[in-house]
Design a protein around this nucleic acid. Structure first.
Lengths: 245, 245
DNA sequence: TTCTCCCTGTTATTTTTTTAACTTTTCGAC
DNA sequence: GTCGAAAAGTTAAAAAAATAACAGGGAGAA
């Protein structure tokens, strides 16, 4: 019973002090962690866990309980002293914060391997983003469907955007074409670009939000860490090499 | 002439003070930025620029010159006072640090859309990583070639690893299969896992390095930023709403 | 109803990261 | 050669982030 009461009470806005509307300015470090909370809470839900304390969650996520509490408190008081957090309620709140319920519509520009791979992953639907279509400069592809998503000719981009509200564009087209297409998309009123193509599109414009995905960077970090790990082992345990002899 | 002298001198190890061998402990923040330097330097090379100062680079990369100098100095003195950095030399050094020349060998586990997409990107060869093969639990795929890479049955993983030195495994297989396969790979002596499948594999084991790629997290951050940007606009210019009427 | 314990929200402290300031070396011109 | 400008290397300060400490408010038991 306590669960429902808690949820009801908090949903109705008895939030102690912080207005949910007035977000001061959340630090990037906190924002980067939010999706991780989202994932773990979803996992808890599927496991049927309805209540969790910051210390329990901290053990599962391998971060400090302090950090969890402080991160969440950037957005408001979602828990209850002496009780913990109601998983369902917290999940709902974080979903809200992350705009899962915003009902954004996306298009994928570039129907190459990467574009195709992305549609197939359940990534978008899980996060409340609806893919309206794919666009490719190869007009020959037009009409083809991939995972239920239709491919259009890139020429028809503007036409399409007039008829449909497009919020997000996923850029998986060749590097050299990215800047021009990005410009077109901004003109169409697209609000965010999810850019996979190494091209640095760091406009500090306020009419577009850009999220760059640098897969190559991630690979190089892995490379680096492997090198470091090898060095460490070599240095730490030179005697071990006798074992095999 | 100065360029060659500089490079020669430094390659031969007249490095003022810091031994390149003894890396103290580089902060994660610095490591995350290294691939970005790598990219920009490569770009400078293709543009035929042979010399650059920290302030010029800072303007291009949109970071502070101070940060560039300090980041680089974690690994040694690569520049020359009153002159700047020799692009080619610096690029070589950073490549070295990032293990581009280490000649790592990789396999891709999972020949689904994502796996296929990754082979097609020139990502690996650009970074000196050689893909030896792909593995899939669907034995029917065996023998197929994708972008010159052969697909093998997952059953033959151990066998393959005995014959070939495999350093890196790219995990693009279904979530539920990841833990088991990861275990097998570690037993095979693989040094690093590049994990695309949301599964948190945070072993704090010292025999394996794990780099998780969370595409979904990136999408959610974009979502979040779009929401924030919309709020900001709404708040800043409420009079604008009259325009459309 | 009251009391105790638990666990959040909050504040303080420490650590990390970033930026700025300063020092010294080198280049290039005269 | 000598001198001034330029720019790296280095040290110091500021800002940001993470951690720890604490205080107060329920929840649940008796």
């Amino acid at each position: 019973m306590a669960y429902e009461e808690l949820e009801k009470q908090q949903v109705e806005g008895t939030d102690s002090h912080k207005e949910h509307g007035t977000k001061p300015n959340i630090s990037p470090a906190v924002v980067r962690r939010l999706p991780r909370y989202y994932r773990y809470l979803r996992e808890l839900l599927t496991q049927g866990i309805t209540r969790i304390s910051s210390s329990e969650l901290s053990a599962r996520m391998n971060v400090t309980a302090s950090q969890i509490r402080q991160d969440l408190n950037c957005f408001g008081g979602f828990g209850q002293q002496g009780y913990g957090y109601n998983v369902h309620y917290l999940f709902t709140c974080i979903s809200e914060i992350l705009g899962v319920g915003a009902g954004f519509h996306a298009v994928i520009i570039g129907a190459g391997d990467l574009g195709r791979a992305l549609v197939h992953l359940s990534m978008f639907e899980k996060r409340g983003v609806d893919i309206l279509g794919m666009f490719d400069s190869d007009a020959g592809m037009e009409g083809t469907e991939i995972a239920g998503v239709t491919i259009y000719s890139l020429d028809k981009l503007e036409q399409f955007c007039e008829k449909n509200q497009v919020d997000i564009a996923v850029l998986t087209l060749p590097k050299e074409d990215v800047p021009a297409v990005a410009e077109r998309l901004v003109k169409c009123g697209v609000k965010g670009l999810w850019n996979y193509m190494g091209v640095e599109l760091d406009y500090s414009r306020d009419d577009i939000v850009i999220e760059n995905v640098h897969l190559g960077d991630s690979l190089m970090i892995l490379n680096y860490e492997i090198c470091r790990n090898m060095e460490k082992k070599q240095g730490a345990a030179p005697a071990q090499s006798l074992d095999g002899e």
